[in-house]
Design a protein around this nucleic acid. Sequence first.
DNA 1: AAGAGGCCCTGATAGC
DNA 2: TGCTATCAGGGCCTCT
Length: 287
Amino acid sequence: MPELPEVEIVRQSLHKKIKKKCIQKVIIRNRNLRFKIPSYFESFLKDKKIIKISRFSKYLIIHFQNENYCLIHLGMSGTIHILNKRKPQKFTNTSFYHSPFLPEKHNHAEFVFDNLKVIYNDPRRFGFFEIIKNHQDLKKRFKSMGPEPFSNKFNLNYVFNYFKNKNKDIKSFLLDQRFVSGIGNIYASEILFASKIYPFKKAKRLNRDECLNVILNSKKILQKAINKGGSSIRDFKDISGNKGNFQKEFKVYKQDGTDCRRAQCKGIIKKKIISNRSTFFCISCQK
DNA sequence: AAGAGGCCCTGATAGC
DNA sequence: TGCTATCAGGGCCTCT
């Protein structure tokens, strides 16, 4: 589900809903995510007040008072849902409104607030939570990761120098979070199409112009995807169940067999596997 | 050190 | 219809 734009959409709606709120209770139904949820997780978060929700790359960062943080990674299939609390009914306990978007299975974690609850769902369990207890550790956590595409550090010098001597294909580097953080399998293909670069091209063979195109198109495409509410393939929705719209803009991702969208190009979009991931490109205009 | 490949897991869909 | 095989938006690990 989530690359940087989708995580950003989740961040924005989550921030609006729970900033300045206190976590009343945490319920874990399945601790076996990508990493095991530690036994102190619930008690650590209980009564903590949320200052804000930020994001680095594909990680959500919940900020609490006193430099405490909780990272959330959605893996491949993680989603976050909000349920609003219903006013107390006569003769019944207070409960939550039903959401038609909330799956029945795999709701592994629940964060209860005064008038709503946040539910973490993740069928494949590649996602995870992580507690971080001071600002220094937070910095350390992302130290080995490359800059985000939007960062000034993701510039021509950085990219061109990084690619010197790199004998691997460019597509793999776009997916390599040590090089650049936040690009995933959809946007990697889209960025290379926009840059007219053959995904199998060795990184060291990219000239400065091509590097610059990759940089500019990374910024442009991710920003556009955020503006469109992310990509809803399979079932990505924001926390209230709204779909994104960027999937309508895919030029190559899952477009194999169709004609190249570029004016005057007579090529066909093809799918090939690069480091175990599907890769889509035009056989004619990407060199 | 860099690169290739495998693995974690469930569910949807394609193909027979 | 019903089975099986393949593939899915990520990231970590090991081996060479």
